[in-house]
Design a protein around this nucleic acid. Structure first.
Lengths: 222, 222
DNA sequence: CTTTCCGTAATGTTGCGGCAATATGGCTGG
DNA sequence: CCAGCCATATTGCCGCAACATTACGGAAAG
């Protein structure tokens, strides 16, 4: 599970990040609307949390643009403007939830988890490739009838590979998906994760091919 | 992925090149508008990054000419002139993005990647010649119904040939496309690649003819 | 304190791609 | 019309960089 946090108040952001990570939620943090749109482009997030007042404008204005890029991406808006009319305004613009400041951090966590559970959304949607079934909702996977025990980073990598099954996924895209945007990655850590993934899904009719010089490709064996 | 960088400040250019190459992006670097136009002629770049102030003029002035040569080539303009009016001026001239100096190198990388991901652009656009279909988005190719397994250099060469199908492509243009501008090439390596390409697309109704003394020509067999 | 995760590095393996040796075929000058 | 030359064709070889795999150890979680 990977979410995008758009918040310019550093202290609040830090508090949220540590709280969310305690709940096994990986957070990418940016501070402006512009950066937020870029991040959404990557398509790796399951939820976006937007502070309403940001240095480059009101985040409500970019909700339609986010929707264009990622239809169905759940959006939670945080705001000091908590009057009913403003909440309504936020929800009508397309936000899925609107949280007035100040709020208890745990409440945000709860609402995120609630949106993640929402059945109509991506939750409980599963993708099957060959004998591998990957559940987008909770990140669980089943290969050849056997449930797999995957670690956090393995889930992140497999999610991207499965979503783009049959198409080559650039190495850099995978790195972005498994680590944050910021975290630089030394050595061959990604290779190691792929290797472990391969071993775990071994007895299925699905393989992770490496495309030399480009990246990886997951596809069902013919 | 291959981009054109037009930048006369040597230090900045060096920094950008090393950052981009770390992201598997091949960079061709020139320092003047004149060289830029020449480079665009080659048709091998997916994105152009122009510094606005160059020794031979304002790079905005050549954007229309670039558009004439390569419709749809995404263009990013870098400039010390970051006032809103100037940004707007840049965008209205036809730039796809406008980045004010000073900027963080990683931000440029992110914007390039964002443009590359833009679905309306080159991605998923395919060209078909005879029984050969080449996907500009991911460099994949299908001949006579069978997907081809191409190596990196083969993809680069075939991409140029396909884009100019029916027209002769000069040997020097192909060399530029397969290698950087700088990398000199000894021996007949290019010929070898063409030979391997021919073998791979053999059973299709498309052929690579050699034009003696000039270069190569890809066209459907009558 | 134990366990799991994951980053790192050491080592093994693969296959791309540069080079050159040799073959082929077309063009030119005699 | 032939000889010789030069551009291109084809193929094998092999270095090296990219990838695979595994072991190890630190760190964080329980």
């Amino acid at each position: 599970m990977r979410i995008l946090l758009v918040e310019d108040e550093v202290d609040l952001a830090k508090a949220l990040i540590s709280a969310l990570e305690r709940h096994d939620i990986l957070v990418d943090h940016v501070t402006t609307l512009e950066m937020a749109l870029e991040a959404v482009e990557s398509g790796v997030h399951s939820i976006a949390v937007l502070d309403r007042k940001l240095p480059d404008g009101d985040s409500l204005t970019i909700i339609p643009r986010i929707r264009k890029i990622q239809t169905g991406l759940p959006i939670i808006v945080l705001s000091a403007l908590g009057a009913p009319e403003q909440r309504i305004e936020g929800l009508e613009t397309g936000a899925d939830d609107y949280l007035a400041k100040p709020f208890v951090v745990d409440e945000l966590v709860a609402r995120i988890r609630a949106l993640m559970r929402r059945p109509a959304m991506i939750a409980d949607m599963a993708v099957t490739v060959g004998q591998l079934t990957f559940n987008l909702g909770d990140g669980s996977a089943v290969a050849a009838g056997e449930p797999l025990t995957l670690t956090r980073r393995e889930v992140l990598a497999l999610e991207v590979l499965v979503k783009r099954a049959g198409r080559t996924v650039a190495r850099s895209i995978l790195e972005e998906a498994v680590y944050g945007f910021d975290d630089e990655i030394a050595s061959n850590t990604l290779d190691a994760h792929i290797s472990r993934l391969r071993r775990k899904i071994a007895p299925g009719r699905v393989e992770i091919h490496s495309i030399r010089g480009i990246g990886y490709l997951l596809k069902a064996t013919a």
